[in-house]
């Protein structure tokens, strides 16, 4: 039992490198053999001693044998993580969860904000399966753009791949929302699969568009995660435990939970928190 479940044991790693992506987004890199073998879409639990333990998608695998997570400063735990520097120790467990299923042929990736960090390992996998990739990357503004150069490098072959960047204020790329681009793309072409990660309301819109055009989709969800091994029940959406049966849910699964997806998630005490529509 212990051998098989070794990755769920907590271990300490040193921060070996830090990439400053933007003013409040950093990628923190460490050495861990389990994370190096992580599948695209999997996450780790990061422990900041004395503060909290939080789930983070693995955004980097095997960069000079380092793995990493991309952290946006949003709360107490991420703020503390932000203060960490090279050589500091953090605790990790994982990788946990299922993963994106790669597809061949024409596929689309749709991200909102830092959601692109969770999709990045998938791009690395997809270019090996000779997929034709359209990457639609939505950001609020120019100064929040991350991962673009790395993605350009991966998708440099313009015969197959396209990158479309949108910003809400028009400070870079197309002005507007990533979902507007998806809507017009789906009118013109067909995709074997859409992969998306970002704010839940954005993903719900992408799901609805995909359903209208009968396109398969895989969505990377976020819920409150505590145990990460499918025990505590903090992360349920419908009958699915996001920590274990997610983070990635398929079209079939999303149809089962369509009353919850994009409508509410549960707080630490299990109380429903409704998503606020801002657009």
């Amino acid at each position: 039992m212990s051998q098989k479940f070794k990755n769920i044991r907590r271990r300490n790693v040193h921060i070996e490198d830090i990439i400053e992506e933007t003013l409040n987004v950093k990628t923190i890199l460490f050495r861990d053999k389990f994370c190096q073998l992580a599948k695209p879409g999997q996450y780790v639990m990061i422990w900041i001693p004395g503060i909290d333990e939080i789930p983070m998608s693995i955004s980097v695998r095997n960069r000079l044998s380092l793995s990493g997570v991309t952290v946006e400063q949003v709360g107490e735990a991420t703020e503390e993580l932000f203060k960490k520097t090279l050589g500091d120790i953090i605790g990790i467990r994982g990788p946990f969860g299922n993963w994106f299923q790669p597809n061949t042929g024409n596929v689309a990736l749709v991200s909102g904000g830092t959601g692109i960090a969770s999709l990045f390992p998938l791009i690395e996998t997809l270019i090996k399966t000779s997929a034709k990739i359209v990457a639609v990357l939505g950001f609020k503004s120019l100064k929040e753009i991350i991962f673009l150069n790395r993605i350009r490098k991966l998708l440099s072959d313009k015969r197959y791949h396209r990158i479309i960047v949108t910003t809400e204020d028009g400070s870079y790329g197309q002005k507007g929302l990533a979902t507007d681009v998806v809507s017009s793309l789906l009118k013109k072409e067909t995709f074997k699969m859409i992969y998306t990660c970002g704010p839940e309301l954005m993903m719900r819109r992408v799901f609805d568009l995909a359903e209208e055009s009968r396109t398969h989709i895989q969505v990377c969800l976020e819920r409150i995660i505590r145990c990460s091994v499918g025990l505590c029940g903090s992360c349920f959406i419908g009958e699915y435990r996001v920590c274990k049966e997610g983070l990635v849910l398929s079209s079939e699964q999303l149809r089962q939970v369509k009353d919850e997806f994009g409508t509410f998630k549960r707080d630490f005490n299990g109380v429903k928190m409704h998503f606020k529509t801002t657009h």
Binding site: R10, M45, R226, C227, C232
Partner: peptide, 8 residues
Amino acid sequence: YKNPTIVD
């Protein structure tokens, strides 16, 4: 409580 709430 805050995490960590469970330890293997």
